[in-house]
Amino acid sequence: MDAFLAFVEGSDLSMWIRGDSMLAFPTIITLHTICMGFLAGASSAIDLRILGLAPGIPLDSLRPFYPLMWLAFAINAATGVLMVIGYPTKQLTNPLFYIKLSLVALGVWLVYRIGTEVLRAAELGQKATTARVKWLAVASLAGWVSLIIAGRLLEYTHRWELLGIRALT
């Protein structure tokens, strides 16, 4: 593991990402933040609609937002991989990183489930907002909130050491 981390950390790409270029880390993390905000925000807005807010929005009419949400996810997967390449030890040795990754998987799976199941049922004229589907929306909202907490704390877990608290790494 250490040899692998050292290999990644010593690569030209990793050093470029950590380097002084404004096109490197600053741009990567900015894209990651914008797309996170859009994906989590749009998905949460759809969840709120399923839970009964803004009932005037026909569920199937929300479909055109999905390609944009998938684009945001694709950009976040790419920028996420680049940030791990930039700081492999810091990320991959932190248990919180794997919690965040699991929350990403949960959030994206729920976007897919809600996108297919709920919106398609609405399109077919079936009852789309059953109690079960409302639980999916609640899980999605809770997932995004947890993901944001984990994502923000990733940036702090190495700093806890400086405060005398044992770091997670």
Partner: peptide, 22 residues
């Protein structure tokens, strides 16, 4: 970050609808 996601997700979708998406 929770606030910015809420803002982008709600105002953003409204703006996109007005611009002609969905």
């Amino acid at each position: 970050y929770l606030g910015l996601s809420l803002l982008l997700g709600t105002v953003g979708l409204f703006d996109l609808r007005v611009l002609g998406l969905a």
